[in-house]
């Protein structure tokens, strides 16, 4: 698929997910099987620390989102794939100021399962804040205007 079209499609879909919209997440790059997400800094998302580092839950949310969207960037037709499990390693804390970027790729898809991996960073992709692996289950369904429909059926919104 054309890269610009895929990016626009992925961003439109991200905006209908309430939690992602509230956080102001934005997809900035999308290519076959890979995606980069940007999260602007927000003081409401810090942890228990006077310096206001970003809470781990926000980084897990970013990684769950970007890993899930990397599947949409991989499959020829978008498919609803809920998260089966996710593991996140924290290498260092995210600075209080500035955007966080999260990159993920879907590196293997089987008939039932999608395997993804990714990391988040601020200034330098070679000095990541977190590293993550997450596994998703294929449902065979996709998003329709009135609920889920089978992949390939009429009424799909993606």
């Amino acid at each position: 698929m054309d890269q610009q079209k895929r990016l626009a499609q992925a961003n439109n879909f991200l905006q209908i997910l309430p939690h992602c919209k509230k956080l102001g997440m934005k997809i900035i790059t999308a290519s076959d099987g890979q995606l980069t997400l940007e999260l602007p800094y927000n003081p409401d998302i810090s942890g228990m620390d006077p310096e206001g580092y970003v809470h781990g839950g926000i980084l897990t949310t970013m990684m769950d989102t970007v890993c899930g969207f990397s599947i949409i960037a991989s499959l020829p037709t978008p498919e609803f794939c809920p998260t089966l499990d996710l593991r996140i390693d924290h290498m260092r804390r995210a600075n209080a100021k500035g955007s966080i970027f999260a990159w993920a790729e879907c590196y293997k898809i089987t008939r039932s399962v999608c395997f993804t991996r990714g990391y988040a960073y601020q200034d330098d992709p070679n000095n990541p804040i977190v590293h993550c692996v997450a596994t998703f289950v294929r449902s065979g369904k996709t998003w329709g205007s009135n609920g889920f429909v089978k992949v390939g059926a009429k009424g799909a919104i993606l």
Binding site: I16, P18, T61, M63, T65
Partner: peptide, 18 residues
């Protein structure tokens, strides 16, 4: 705003983890 999937609807998995 904790919803991740508005169709089911279901909580965002990242919110459950957080």
């Amino acid at each position: 705003s904790n919803v991740g999937n508005p169709i089911s609807p279901a909580l965002h998995g990242g919110v459950v983890a957080g």
